[in-house]
Design a protein around this nucleic acid. Structure first.
Lengths: 333, 333
DNA sequence: TTACAGCATTGGAGCGCTCCAACCAATAGA
DNA sequence: TCTATTGGTTGGAGCGCTCCAATGCTGTAA
């Protein structure tokens, strides 16, 4: 249960502690003979450097902290993959902590992450108030993903929800739809841009927008569709605020004896793994998630290396993924 | 960008560094007067303790490392929730790292986690060879979740796949099914117990087991069903190795013009959020995931506090969740 | 009065490492 | 021959903290 230290390795290799340190950091000014002797001793003892002592002594860190607001959402997993890829390439490690969607828990996660004095922090769709982020940003570089900020010391990476919604509308219009409703995400992150993009796109085609209040869950999607049916206001196509909502909408449509896509077309948003299941096969808007992560890590590392001080605002363009829930409206066939 | 140290707080509060340390650790032997003076100074300076320096000096850690083999799988998110809950209660923090399902990456993640010298480690369904785990177990307490081990210094928490499979078979038999096939998980973790439980349960009812090779994906489930149809060997009920496989199976059945559950019943395994979607509404086997996490954290903390040395092997009992993909076989109605 | 607890407080050593100035050949230049 | 130069190596200080033995106090018993 007790790990060997540099001192032990030095003793065994018959050199000084400082020399072991040089070898461990891959310094070029060590003779081949000593280097191999040190490496051998380290191997035999099962030595590996103590990251904390190292970071304490060097007053630097090779760790990037990542706070994931919700581990249950696979969206973030892919962003983390992107971050990890870039961090690894540049010799950084990442540690993750989760906020469980609750501001209090998130705050604690942030504190915990900060107590490790990482080189920088990526916050994935955080729900803590902006003030807390601004305060943390005084201590280290911070990048926000899927959340905007006006703080100039903070970089942001987001998808362009307006473009995504427009893509969906254009797709539906090109299929011949004119009555297209939007099941709105309400307070949810990114619901605003998606709604605005939908309304703008509809108006640009001279069509009347129909925004239906809803939420980011399948139950909410189903509820919204039932209310549309009850009011006899069912359109020929639906643009949901996300994939879960879309799946709920589809199931309510089917319950009502309607068929997707022959009677009603449905488009989701996010291209979650759910959408790709053949049983669902949902037409949806894809966001380049891994790219989010890569750009976030790049931006962060630039700040860490003090290569840049002006903020960066990445706005990535989403793309349309056509599957089997969209078709021309029934009347046109 | 520079955080204040204990020295700064001590200076401002007009006390010694050691006294600040006592206050920060909530020692009872500090006069109320000094305590509030220190707290006030800390507050004003925005001081928070340096976790690494603390752990270096105290030769202890209040951090638990968690390695998640696959962040994309929501299964682990709930286990992490359970770990987090218990750790927090007992004054520990957790840091997460991910192995991305690849042994090489996982090894690196393990190294990275170890370099922080955490008090202990929870490995969620790791794919690294047992040797690496055993070696790490010489350095700190380790608990394995969703993976078994014979190493006596390692605790394990698993679900009883045999019981789960039996529950599914019993449910189907009670509905009147006699021809029940199992779409097998092959090499996947926990596929073995599930298969054994299925075979044993079938035999205990005097029924002939029908094990069909498959995998833990929806595409594999669909493929397996198509091959059953092609061979004219379709049973009246299917027990899939997991939920994804089940959803794939359902979609292939529907493609073939069969209806679920009136023509064929399908049971999944894992009770993922997918299964709960109304569009899917899958009968499945639920594992107490958060409980996995809680037990794992408890076991780990016992070891950390040296309260126990003999290994613990938790085997949790799963339960059946009946939804809308199972019904009596068509012939009986 | 002295002695002795008991309590709050403090300085110093040390955790495992990095960094720096100093050092020591061995070789090169004059 | 003497002085520089260079490449390799080393001891010591110090990162922010904890822990411990020692210190100064007050209050109480002898």
């Amino acid at each position: 249960m007790v790990r060997p230290t540099m001192e032990d390795v030095a003793l065994r290799a018959g050199v000084s502690r400082a020399l072991v340190s040089l070898v461990m950091r891959g310094s070029p000014k060590v003779s081949e003979m000593r280097r191999s002797a040190v490496l051998k001793a380290a191997e035999e003892l099962g030595y590996s450097p103590h990251a904390m002592a190292r970071s304490l002594a060097s007053r630097t860190s090779t760790v990037l902290g990542v706070m994931v607001s919700d581990l249950h959402n696979a969206f973030f997993a892919e962003v983390v993959d992107g971050i990890d890829e870039v961090a690894r390439e540049q010799g950084f490690d990442i540690i993750i902590n989760t906020g469980g969607r609750s501001p209090a828990r998130e705050r604690r996660a942030l504190e915990s992450l900060l107590s490790f004095r990482p080189a920088g922090l990526v916050l994935l769709s955080p729900v803590v108030p902006g003030g807390a982020i601004g305060k943390a940003a005084e201590q280290l570089p911070i990048v926000l993903v899927a959340r905007s900020s006006r703080v100039s010391s903070v970089d942001t990476v987001n998808d362009d929800g307006e473009v995504g919604a427009r893509l969906a509308v254009e797709h539906l219009v090109s299929l011949g739809h004119q009555r297209i409703a939007h099941l709105d995400g309400g307070e949810g992150t990114q619901a605003g841009p998606r709604r605005r993009g939908y309304v703008a796109a509809m108006e640009s085609f001279g069509l009347a927008p129909q925004v239906v209040p809803s939420e980011y869950t399948d139950a909410a999607g189903a509820r919204a569709v039932r209310s549309l049916i009850a009011e006899d206001a069912l359109p020929t196509a639906i643009l949901s605020c996300n994939d879960f909502n879309a799946v709920g909408a589809i199931s309510a449509l089917e319950d009502a004896g309607l068929r997707v896509p022959s009677d009603v077309s449905v488009v989701g948003y996010d291209n979650t793994s759910l959408a790709a299941l053949r049983h669902v096969s949902l037409t949806t808007i894809d966001q380049p998630r891994a790219e989010f992560g890569r750009l976030a890590a790049d931006a962060l590392l630039q700040r860490v290396r003090s290569e840049r001080t002006e903020p960066v605002r990445h706005l990535l363009t989403p793309s349309l993924v056509v599957r089997n829930t969209t078709a021309p409206p029934g009347g046109l066939r």
